[in-house]
Amino acid sequence: MMTTAFFTLAGTNAAMAHVKWFCAYDLAGAPRGLGEVLCADFEKLVGLSLLALVVGGLLEGTVLGAALIRSLDRATAWARENTELLFRAVCGGFFVALWSLGGVILTPELKTANTALPWFQLAIAVGFLWRRTMPLSALGIVVLFVTAIRAYGAFHLADYPVFLGVAAYIALTGLGRSLPGGIRPLDVVRYTAAVTLMWASVEKWAYPQWSYPLFVEHPGMTFGFSGEYFMKAAGAVEFVLAFALICTPLVRRVSAILLAATFISAIFEFGKIDAIGHAPIIVAMVAIAADNATAPYRLRNLALTPVGYGAALAAFIGLYYGAHAVFQGTSIL
């Protein structure tokens, strides 16, 4: 099982490529039944994920964990000091790329015939040049998100709440504010990125067949495992890394590094479309990896990790299948 997990993590770089950008998909079609998803292999993968979370949490309270945090602080100092600049540069470049491509709302599969939208996207990019116009760019992102919902539906756009998180970061940073309760702009990005990736993980379990054409083109991706099993394992890896983003500082920083590495690795396999599409979440992962915010270490919080992970897993599977039943009219069984 440990060998399987290792190879799956190594191969997840390709699985992290958003399948809707490269393969045919059908959201109206029925997802895999829960009986097929919640099988023995799934249970073993969940158990392994929990083990990884607990080990990471225990490590954080040791001398080695403290040394790792200090090393991360030194290695990521530049990114931490220039987080706002990184977001402005990458997001500005992202919207310039969308303007250049044309016919795309926010991600490659969200097509539009509206000829005014590319120029609207260019205006969003220009807004990143000055701090006082950043809130206007943030508002523009929200307008694009709503436009995409009207064209593709709320269920489809549930794939991308990270864009709303990025918009919140841009607006709050431009205004020099945080949310009540001490929630920082970067925390909003972190939470929405976690939600985005946990939702995407469930989609890998619900529709593994969407990725099968990629396995034909890139047979080495699965390391000899069946496509069905590989997608279960890839979803498990993505889910646990996404959940780790809302955990303790060292765990979430390591998770962000692993996620950034997989997204960047996928670019070499899938090219500029993947680079453009994943640019906002990559910069978010870099910022989270560099974030040196601390929190008191408490063993009782670690003891609650399995409960939190289990609750998140049940909630996202239930939400995905429940929302699909409501919006697409399919059974969850």
Rank of each mutant, 00 (worst) to 15 (best):
T83K: 04
T83Y: 01
T83G: 07
E84A: 09
L86H: 10
L86G: 12
V90T: 13
C91Q: 04
G92E: 04
G92P: 03
G93I: 08
F94T: 05
V96G: 06
L98R: 08
L98H: 02
L98W: 01
L98I: 11
G103S: 07
L106F: 11
P108F: 06
L110K: 06
K111Y: 12
K111A: 13
K111Q: 13
T112S: 13
T112Q: 05
T112R: 03
T112V: 06
A113L: 14
A113E: 15
N114I: 09
N114K: 07
T115V: 15
A116M: 14
A116Q: 14
L117F: 12
Q121C: 11
Q121W: 11
Q121A: 10
Q121G: 11
L122A: 13
L122M: 15
I124Y: 00
A125L: 03
V126C: 13
G127Q: 04
W130C: 15
R131I: 03
R132Q: 10
T133R: 12
T133W: 12
P135L: 08
P135I: 10
L136R: 06
L136E: 03
S137K: 09
A138D: 03
L139N: 05
I141D: 00
I141N: 03
V143H: 03
V146S: 07
V146G: 06
A148Y: 00
I149A: 11
I149W: 08
R150A: 14
G153L: 07
A154V: 15
A154K: 03
H156S: 09
H156R: 10
H156Y: 13
D159C: 05
Y160C: 03
P161L: 09
V162K: 02
V162E: 07
V162S: 08
V166A: 09
A167S: 14
A168W: 00
Y169M: 07
A171N: 01
L172T: 00
T173I: 09
G174V: 04
G174P: 03
L175Q: 13
L175R: 15
L175H: 09
G176M: 05
G176S: 04
R177Q: 15
R177A: 14
S178R: 15
L179R: 10
P180S: 05
G181P: 07
G181D: 10
I183S: 02
I183V: 15
R184L: 10
R184S: 14
P185I: 07
P185Q: 06
P185F: 06
P185S: 08
L186A: 07
L186N: 06
V188T: 14
V188P: 01
V189Q: 03
R190A: 01
Y191H: 09
Y191T: 08
Y191K: 06
T192H: 04
T192L: 15
V195D: 02
V195P: 02
T196H: 05
T196A: 07
A200L: 12
V202Q: 05
V202E: 05
E203T: 13
K204Y: 10
W205Y: 10
